[in-house]
Design a protein around this nucleic acid. Structure first.
Lengths: 389, 389
DNA sequence: CTCGTTTTCGGAAACGTTTGCGATAGTTTA
DNA sequence: TAAACTATCGCAAACGTTTCCGAAAACGAG
């Protein structure tokens, strides 16, 4: 039937099982096993991105020479280089980052993990990161954790699988264990935290003036004559929430005011949490005369809720909030805030990370604080004459 | 001096030039050229991400077997597989996407180019894209063009260099030539346009109801009794701007109103463009009684500018805008808009692209329209009794 | 002209993974 | 109990680049 592909003998051929659907043969003469392959007819090359090899073939030279020409090596004749560059341009050659990265062991890419890109704060941070990264020749890969610990862990794994050169992380609210970060840190992956940082691991961090901001806002309220200041806080173990409340406490301490712990409400940043908090506060025998929200969005919600209940701001209740957006200045009454600079935070974090990547060994983690700014608006301005003081 | 590394002879050695700083030798006996290398002392392995080879060595098997175990191949013993998985887990193995992608010829990554991530619309789109992509097992790489044609071109090249499986593009305002897109399309890169699309190239597109939205907004104004409707438009050659103005024209046509071309102002979405436009309109002998802004942000600006000039809204001038944000409902007076669904747009575009990637050959480009919604608010509600009609 | 020197190029290994194919050993069938 | 078969593994090529090192040729000085 089928002759041996080696000795050509026919009579010594026996069948020897099937392998992956194909009949396997055995030639007893030359002791050879083989299978019969249908000739591959579609051998015409598909259209593909042009490679260094395409250029080499077009010029009848070797790929290494082409590589040298493209990489400004000096071990190459200038005429050859010109020719290569010409052909490369002609074929619209784009170096394959995958191959380059695999070979060099670095991707020149940094991974970013944020809770939610739709929050203007994080969008600003990302923009800052991209600016610095692009200028330094780095690409950026963005993942959203959607405030889920599990997704965050998956994000870390995905980015590590992509072999990013470093990681920029702002933790989800849920995250209270940090094994996924520690693991990568142990493997030598540079990591920088920002905003929602984590003290359990030894990384560089970029934080805001959470304490000072909280202090400034509350001090402002106190100076405006408010005495019973309620706090709308985030989850109990969120670090930035803690720091801002510490500022709140410090301001009270400075002005000799006692703190009524009942006024501190721990919410979940949920949708109708503002209403709930208000219901709670207004049910107290000693009602608050002002509110400090840990997050500006809640400040907006509070204003809306208070307006619905016909409670006048800032007369009956004053409001201040941490964080700022255009909307805070446009709403009636405009909202007093501690303004953040998300873009700057992003820039700082990216700078720090790239520093860490480049000086992998000598880099010592440290923390940078990005200054904020108290912006006084109508929502807390009880005594208008004080404006110019 | 130095013996030949081959025949050991010393007297036949002559020096033969320098090569990369090292003395090159020539043995005339065995006709061998060689250089002397200092022994490499730091041969202890650096810490690295664990590879398939590490696992193979740990178990004394071959890398291919490990690969098969990890890829659920059936050509592997179940006990071996268990062992491999155990070790892989122990060593926290993460497959190298670079190597995988290089080998498979696909990255399972889609590239996204948007003008500015800080614009809530695009942040919403990106979120929609990421949702669909993640569910389909794709990663996302985001680039910002910053409304610059040049940067956009660089973005395309960078993403192509990263060998993304497909491209999702919303063009910059500047972009009026599309060679960079055509080039990649010719090379077989799947591309889907969204929002700021381009009719010159044959790609799938996701657009909004630009025409219908413009029509609905202007019709609403007309029904409210407004007769001289000004338009604040974008650059003349921005496609979506054109379509929305076409809706404006159509509405006029339907109700037999003539169009005063003087009322159409082409701005650049710049910062004080709103003021300029107002100055211009108010300088006309026939002043407008309402304004339609192509972009919601300009609507907000208009409201602010009008309030400063003590022009009452909607009595003296009504305002409607294309696009929506939380702020539009909170500002006083609240802004009538044609609400977009950026998240849906992102989802649709990503779905389309992935479809295109998977059925690369059979896919035929088509256009999908994401419905919008007219939301009537106070800025255009001249006749309050009409609300319930 | 000779020999050391420099310039310029090619070959091959390496990066980490997948996969076609052959090989071995054990298992079933007739 | 051979012959036919199956299960399981290893080898090597391939993906596209970079880079080490050697080779050939051109160059230079004495």
């Amino acid at each position: 039937m089928t002759p041996c592909i080696k000795c050509g003998s026919v009579e010594n051929i026996v069948r020897s099982g099937f392998i992956r659907g194909k009949q396997r043969m055995h030639c007893k003469a030359c002791n050879l096993y083989f299978t019969i392959n249908p000739p591959n007819e579609s051998s015409n090359k598909k259209p593909h991105q042009t490679t260094i090899i395409d250029i080499a073939k077009a010029l009848g030279i070797s790929p290494s020479t082409v590589s040298r020409a493209l990489n400004k090596s000096n071990e190459i004749n200038d005429n050859t280089r010109q020719e290569i560059l010409r052909v490369a341009n002609e074929l619209d050659y784009r170096p394959n980052f995958l191959a380059q990265s695999l070979n060099r062991g670095e991707t020149h890419t940094i991974g970013v993990i944020i809770p939610d890109i739709q929050r203007p704060f994080f969008a600003g941070v990302v923009a800052g990161i991209q600016k610095v990264a692009t200028e330094a020749g780095y690409r950026v890969m963005i993942c959203q954790s959607n405030e889920s610990h599990h997704t965050e862990t998956l994000n870390v794994q995905a980015l590590v699988a992509s072999r990013v050169d470093g990681l920029l992380i702002s933790h989800s609210k849920e995250t209270n264990s940090f094994e996924h970060v520690k693991l990568q840190l142990k493997k030598g992956v540079p990591i920088v935290h920002f905003d929602r940082v984590c003290n359990e691991v030894d990384t560089a961090k970029v934080i805001q003036e959470d304490f000072s901001g909280g202090f400034a806002l509350v001090e402002h309220l106190i100076l405006q004559g408010y005495k019973r200041i309620a706090v709308f806080a985030g989850p109990t173990d969120l670090l930035i929430s803690k720091a801002r409340i510490d500022g709140y406490r410090a301001a009270h301490l400075k002005y000799g005011l006692t703190i009524d712990e009942d006024l501190i409400y721990h919410g979940n940043f949920g949708k109708d949490e503002a209403e709930k908090a208000l219901d709670y506060w207004l049910s107290l025998s000693q009602k608050p005369d002002s509110i400090f929200t840990i997050h500006y969005a809640n400040g907006i919600e509070m204003i809306m809720a208070l307006k619905e209940r016909n409670i006048s701001i800032p007369e009956d209740i004053g409001i201040v909030a941490f964080g700022d957006e255009l909307i805070a200045s446009l709403i009636e009454p405009s909202l007093t805030v501690f303004h953040q600079f998300p873009f700057t935070i992003g820039e700082t974090a990216a700078t720090l990370l790239i520093e860490n990547i480049i000086n992998k060994d000598s880099f010592i983690p440290h923390t940078k604080v990005v200054k904020g700014e108290l912006i006084i608006r109508k929502s807390s301005l009880r005594n208008r004459t004080l404006t110019n003081s």
